[in-house]
Structure formats: C-alpha cells, structure tokens
Amino acid sequence: MRLTECLRDEKEEILRLWMEAVYATYPFDAKGVLRTVSDPFGNPGADMTREAAHALYDAVMGEETTVDGVKGALERFVKLRAVQRDTPSRALGVFHLLKPIMRQRLLPHCTDSGELNGYLAAESRLDSLILLAFDMYMADRETLAESRVKEIRSQHAQLTKWAQAFKKSLLVAG
C-alpha cells in the first residue's frame, strides 16, 4: 500500500488511539465523560483534544498547512495542558505518544512499500510540531506569571493611587 493511501486509511484509527492515550493521562473515572460527551461546550477538554488531534495528524502527515494554522489548532489544547500538569514533560509528552502509534500502524506498511524516507519525514514533522508546542507552552506559562503580577497590582490599584497622592501632599507640605 502506498504511503498516502495508508495515511488516509489509518487516520481515524491513529487519531482514536492517540486520543485514548491522551485520556489515559487522566484518572480512570474521568475517562468515560471525556470519551462520550461530544458537546464542545459541555465537554471542552475533549473538544480541544479532538481539534488538536486532527491538526496534528494532518500536519505530521504532510498535508498543506501553515505554521500559524497548526498553532491555532493546537492552541487550546496546549493551554489546557499547560495548566493541568505540573511539569513541561507531563504537559507536552502526549505529543510523543503519537510516535509509538505511528510505528505500530504505519511503519510496517512504509517498510514494505519502500517508503521509509517518507515515514521518517513524518516523524521529523512531529518533532517540529513538538518544538512549536513547546514555544506555545512557554508563552502560556509566561502569561500565567504575568497575570499574577498584574492581579496583585490591580487589586489595590486605586489604593496605590491614593497612597501616592497622599505621599505627594506630605512632600509638598514639607
């Protein structure tokens, strides 16, 4: 089977396996809801995972795509992982989970049809995507850190203004 056909045929199964692998990073008793509720607002975590899975697959398999386009599709998922897991490896490691699935489902076909280079190129694209995701993850963590500082300032914004005016009046009065 040629690589392109193989990619098309295996898409649904590979996506399913990857999403299962992502859900397996959550507690067992949460999995049922993640898998079965399809409402994008009633079960946003699963919706984000689905969106990321499709974008990830298309980009890895070499479909026409732009960096901004794929970043946009991964954005919600990366944001979610960035606040759900306490280390970058646990947050972003889920992207690496695609590799064993690809090796199981695609590599034998590619080896048989002599398209190993095509397969290796797909894995390299996955590596690129993981680097992109890492940049996004870091930007999200920076946003969180900035939010803490901004919030502390905002909480007392008017009080600070008042204190500054008070200090100024004291200085004027000598």
Binding site: A21, A24, T25, F28, D29, S89, G93, V94, L97, K99
Partner: peptide, 17 residues
C-alpha cells in the same frame, strides 16, 4: 520512555476511587 515520563496510568486502577 516518554510514556513512562508522563506517567500514564494503568488501564484499570488498582485502588478504589
């Protein structure tokens, strides 16, 4: 391996919730 690093849980938990 990456799978071990991200600590995927076993298919069925050993303990009650």
């Amino acid at each position: 391996a990456p799978q071990e690093l991200i600590a995927s849980r076993p298919p069925f938990p050993g303990e009650h919730w």
